[in-house]
Write a protein that binds this DNA or RNA. Structure first.
Lengths: 227, 227
DNA sequence: GAATTAATCAAACGTTTGATTAATTTTAGC
DNA sequence: GCTAAAATTAATCAAACGTTTGATTAATTC
């Protein structure tokens, strides 16, 4: 496609004519390419030449815009985490009201947040597992534990006091349970989905939401057998 | 320590005298070193020189025993999965009897299997995320999906026919739920445990088992409201 | 219209990588 | 005791890596 406005890419040296059709910033294209490749094969595994090739620029551009390899890495993660931070901030802004069915909302929000950017948790998980003791871990630890996770713990404690949730659960364990139920399937499915007859298609998030809502609703209710 | 029986490691070429004190097979030492380093920093990130140095042999030994890098990689995973396979086989040999409380055994076995080798799921998860479309994914996919996961699915279907488990769950989703509840916390805890007041200590596996048993027991029971 | 800056590339740099080779020594079989 | 095989190392290889350099040209400023 669009062969007419672009030369067939054997481009010569010199500053190219600006705004020839509409192409994104080189800097932005490099970040996109780096992110894509990092999701596909891990950042450590892909060379700068590969990144530059996908961005359709020369490797020297990486030095030019980011200094060195680490600079590109940090810039890439910085941009990725901006999206997470925005989502966390949005959820925190609408604090969880009381009511047992409110947990349905919680599950739905969480699953949809992950499904919207399925590459992000994958990338985070990988890099966190990969770099032991890196500043990235501190970063993630803050973003996840202090954010949605702590929020869930607080809310669960509230609901237990109001007898909306069985009080014989450890709130922290329960928060981790919810995180597990919503996050882990997205990591597992590409691996075992085929052999299990499940696919990570458009319908899967809704199916996961429904399943988790049913399960948690049955598990958490404090009505049938208390007081 | 033991400086007396070993030369201070500037060893010359040629076959070394056998049973000089008692040192393990070079092959085995290489596999140990590769596993350790793979857990610490990921297999892709560590060079053959580093592995050989830790095993206290020359890099050429890797070629000698494993052919090439991929050979070492496969041998390493093969050895690691033997342990898992043994455990799976043991569980399969004692087929899950019927009865609702039997799910308690299932959860306990799974958590204890992971807790016994906490580095294995970490390594598997990382390598699976890292190598997209590699033969290793096929390998893991077979070991995990065809093994414990499929076994759980079959068992759940049985129990649903016997009305021991609510029949309005998708067995495959339920199997994934159990895998999530038992596996994910081990990946999350090192990251968010501190900030949550939970630690991955000796007591944690038992705590996780108890929590999951309670949760699943409440969620799965088919008695209180059906027939 | 001359001088300067910004953006880009091709080519080359020195380093490190996975892999191979040749030499060396012990062990085992005859 | 000789010989062939096994096991190991030092030294080396080509290829790939991240990075730097010098040249080149569009755009901007004066």
């Amino acid at each position: 496609m669009n062969i007419d406005t672009q030369t067939p890419t054997p481009r010569g040296p010199g500053r190219p004519r600006q705004s020839e059709s509409e192409k994104a910033d080189v800097r932005e294209r490099l970040l996109d390419a780096a992110t894509e490749l990092a999701v596909e094969q891990g950042f450590e595994a892909c060379g700068l030449r590969e990144i530059a090739t996908r961005a359709e620029v020369s490797p020297a551009m990486i030095s030019y815009y980011f200094g060195d390899r680490d600079g590109l890495y940090e810039a890439m993660f910085g941009r990725a985490f901006e999206r997470i931070s925005e989502k966390v901030a949005a959820v925190m802004a609408d604090p969880l009201r009381s009511g047992r069915d409110r947990i349905d909302d919680l599950v739905a929000i969480q699953v949809k947040a992950i499904a919207a950017d399925p590459w992000l948790p994958k990338l985070v998980m990988r890099e966190v597992l990969a770099r032991n003791g890196s500043p990235m871990q501190e970063f993630v630890s803050n973003a996840v534990a202090k954010g949605p996770l702590q929020m869930m713990v607080d809310w669960i404690e509230q609901e237990q006091e109001r007898h909306e949730i069985r009080s014989d659960y450890d709130p922290r364990m329960l928060a981790m349970t919810i995180a597990s139920l919503t996050g882990f399937p997205f990591l597992m499915l590409p691996l075992v989905g085929d052999r299990l007859g499940l696919e990570l298609d458009d319908e899967f998030p809704d199916r996961l939401i429904a399943h988790n809502q049913k399960l948690l609703s049955n598990a958490l209710r404090a009505h049938t057998e208390e007081e």
